[in-house]
Nucleic acid binder design. Structure first.
Length: 777
DNA sequence: TGGTTTAGCCC
DNA sequence: GTACGGGCTAAACCAT
């Protein structure tokens, strides 16, 4: 094959042409051939091709014309290397004539552009980004229906993109090529109900509807300081009722009395604003949580993405964006624009998405259980935890600020005396230059200067200074300034807990993250109980190891946790390793192995913690598993799930699906899989316990103020009766939840600590309260 | 201004 | 040569 464009082409290598029916109505256009394609002279027969064909309805078919934007191979590193990138760009331009000639030779219905280069060559528009336009019909002179941009399968194999979306996009192209109608969102009509009389009329329409979709637009993300601008409701996606903020009080009756099921997209956010405005809002259905139940990957659950995927809803962001920018809020958007392009579509799209997603969840018994029994109740729990917030000890924050700022200034002076006036210890570039170029210290792992590397370098004064500087700088920026600023409004921090933040079912926390506060007493004590109250922390004891024991039914682990004498697992393992006369150091090592096991630790990782040789560490790991063979088998079975194409499912209905397995990511997927079940179960036990106890605690004026994977923090009056009642309630439920969910082979154990400052909670204080209340533990 | 990399904190 | 699961934030750096 030789065409005129090849004269100007900078590559001029061996060429790979097209395959399939030259007259096909459906064309796949890829980027450039890979190694396998070059060898066999056909496009899409390597790993990318395999993924493409398994994602194609009906599989590999000669009725599809398959070709590439470039017919020569461009080395895979081209996107990182500027010289190669320029070459690739030039090649794609010179080759586009050949591509378009081939396409134009016969009438086409649909062209699938796989990746940016295919899209650019087909449209001539280099501003397109595949990640932004994928799955949308782009009109084209070359195809009657148009171009459907889709992520390149190679990108998915590298770990970017989302397989569900990829499959849906390909299926959509086939649907269109086979004469199917384009997905068409319903664009709702809307009306503003701005007077009490108008509201009364709207309420009459709405109050007996079985399902109402609700959304609010606000001036910001903080329900304490920001305000609702407008509220939208709909029971039919064709029509949205809009209510300006000033008439919202007139909706009280609707929210309080309606028997409707209330639908939101991330209702945890909306209901906090609505409750502040005096409405009895509740979340019965939630499209964000439905989407997460169906796909535990992150980054695909915002309403724009869902509506775009399900019915090709237009992206109106660009129409709203010009009115935003620094210092401006949604209140600065003209009402007409806000209603037409934001509020009305959001309310209607939520309803439209719900119809599809709810059915998909209902069709799967595990997901139905997860959604109704865990995700929706968690939304209710967390909207309350977020609103209540965690009290901040401003004195401790101020003290920490003074101490850390003072120390940081000292350190900086000393560091600059060695590194020079312009030396910035926060800059990894500066640190690497000083250590490896000027001081000629030995390099490890490239030019990394992280904690472990510094610890292994010869202990020069500058290294000690940099180590301490990093610690103090972190303490100051992340854990003093952020907490100080976040609590400036009402003396509390109100973190946001994401239900969909992890692939295991753990919660995540942000702004601020209350799940990674340093354990140092003076830092944890930035959080405390307000005057007259105390904090209680209730922890699950070794939750993940107990989960592993229960799931694997391992004889050794089960005997440890069912042991009436209560000899700890660390002691039991130490005895197995060293006999009855083990030393305290031995016990420490045993503890590290025990905790490492649940994370799938390797000998290298274990050496980092306990020292010694790699062989010795491997010996401990082997011995541990020899001693717990059923646990070993269970973990191995989980590890092999990605290769076997098996989806892991927990008792709570959490799933770990294995979408794309490649040689590169296999190891990572196996590690995730082996960790998933016990991590997931441990956090669900905590979450369910919190859901169960919340209302009972409120009657005692006790409030959950933080949740950290296997523990919860509770604020309550400093009264022994209350403390004892709360402790008993929470401990009982944390221990009962696993039994109720069929996790019965080992008991779970919860423990309570009490005090005024988070850094100084003790079990003695809890026991004292039990004594004082004349109750027994 | 926004995205990526490197670092450090937690369970 | 191979690092151990799940997260979030800040600062520097680099591209646009």
């Amino acid at each position: 094959m030789y065409v005129e464009g090849c004269h100007d082409c900078p590559v001029r290598g061996k060429k790979v042409g097209s395959r399939g029916n030259p007259k096909a109505g459906l064309v796949y256009v890829g980027e450039s051939p890979g190694v396998e394609e070059l060898r066999d002279g056909e496009p899409f027969i390597g790993p990318s091709g395999k993924l493409l064909w398994v994602s194609t309805p009906g599989g590999d078919s000669p009725e599809i014309l398959t070709t590439n934007a470039m017919c020569c191979r461009i080395p895979g590193k081209a996107d990182e290397n500027p010289r190669l990138k320029a070459l690739k760009h030039k090649a794609s331009i010179t080759c586009s004539g050949r591509l378009l000639d081939e396409i134009k030779a016969h009438p086409r219905r649909v062209i699938v552009a796989l990746g940016n280069y295919a899209l650019w060559a087909l449209t001539g528009n280099y501003n397109f980004k595949i990640s932004q336009v994928r799955g949308k019909i782009i009109p084209s002179q070359y195809a009657t229906i148009g171009i459907i941009p889709v992520m390149h399968p190679a990108a998915l194999l590298r770990g970017t993109g989302n397989l569900r979306q990829f499959r849906r996009d390909i299926a959509y192209a086939h649907h269109l090529a086979n004469g199917g109608a384009p997905y068409q969102p319903i664009e709702p009509r809307y009306e503003v109900f701005g007077t009490p009389q108008a509201v009364a009329k709207a309420v009459k329409d709405l109050i007996n509807q079985p399902l109402i979709s609700c959304d609010v637009e606000t001036t910001g993300f903080n329900s304490r300081t920001d305000k609702i601008i407008d509220l939208g409701l709909a029971y039919n996606p064709e029509f949205v009722y809009l209510f300006p903020a000033e008439v919202i009080p007139h909706l009280q009756r609707l929210f309080a009395l309606s028997r409707s099921r209330w639908l939101y997209h991330n209702g945890k956010f909306d209901v906090q604003f609505l409750r502040k405005a005096g409405l009895k809002a509740r979340v019965d259905e939630d499209t964000l949580l439905l989407s997460y139940a169906l796909d535990e990957q992150k980054g695909v659950h915002d309403l724009e993405t869902i509506a775009g995927d399900l019915f090709d809803a237009p992206d109106y962001k660009h129409l709203v964006r010009p009115y935003l920018g620094k210092g401006r809020t949604y209140a600065d958007i003209p009402k007409g624009v806000l209603y037409k392009y934001r509020l009305a579509p959001d309310v209607s799209y939520t309803l439209q998405a719900f119809r599809q997603l709810r059915e998909q969840v209902r069709a799967d018994v595990h997901l139905e259980k997860l959604y109704t029994k865990t995700l929706i109740p968690a939304s209710d729990l967390l909207s309350y935890v977020e609103t209540h917030g965690l009290y901040v000890n401003q004195d401790q924050v101020n003290t920490n600020q003074e101490v850390f700022e003072g120390r940081l200034a000292e350190l900086l002076t000393q560091i600059k005396a060695i590194g020079g006036e312009n030396f910035n210890p926060n800059s990894t570039y500066d640190v690497a230059e000083l250590l490896f170029d000027k001081m000629r210290l030995p390099r490890k792992r490239g030019r990394s200067t992280d904690k472990k590397v510094l610890a292994k370098l010869p202990q020069k004064p500058i290294i000690k200074l940099i180590q301490e500087h990093r610690k103090v700088a972190k303490a100051l920026s992340t854990y003093v300034y952020a907490i100080r600023d976040a609590s400036a409004h009402d003396g509390r921090v109100h973190a946001t807990y994401l239900i969909h933040g992890t692939r295991t079912g753990r919660l995540s926390s942000n702004e601020p993250n209350l799940q990674n506060i340093p354990r140092a007493k003076e830092q944890r004590s930035m959080f405390m109980a307000p005057p007259g109250k105390v904090l209680m922390e209730v922890d699950l004891n070794q939750a993940e190891l107990r989960s592993l024991a229960a799931l694997s039914n391992d004889a050794f682990l089960c005997s440890v946790y069912n042991d009436p004498a209560g000899v700890s697992i660390h002691d039991r393992v130490a005895i197995k390793f060293w006999g009855a006369n083990f030393t305290p150091e031995d016990k420490m090592k045993a503890k590290n192995v025990n905790f490492g096991i649940v994370y799938g630790i390797t000998s290298t990782g274990l050496v980092e913690q306990i020292g010694g040789s790699k062989q010795e560490a491997q010996g401990f790991i082997d011995m541990w598993f020899d001693n717990a063979p059923e646990a070993h088998t269970f973990i191995k079975k989980c590890r092999s799930a990605p290769v076997r194409g098996v989806t892991l499912i927990t008792a709570f209905g959490r799933k770990k699906r294995h979408m794309i397995v490649t040689r590169e990511n296999l190891h990572e997927l196996q590690n995730e899989a082996s960790n998933f079940p016990h991590q997931s179960i441990a956090s669900d036990i905590t979450l369910h316990a919190a859901i169960r106890v919340r209302r009972r605690l409120i009657k005692l004026n006790a409030h959950i103020v933080n949740l950290i994977h296997d523990s919860m923090l509770i604020e309550m009056p400093n009264n022994p009766y209350v403390i004892a009642a709360v402790g008993k309630t929470v401990i009982t439920e944390m221990q009962q939840v696993p039994r109720d969910w069929g996790i019965t082979r080992v008991p779970f154990k919860a423990e309570a600590k009490v005090g005024t400052r988070w850094g100084y909670l003790t079990d003695d204080a809890y026991k004292a309260a039990l004594r004082d209340s004349h109750m027994t533990a």
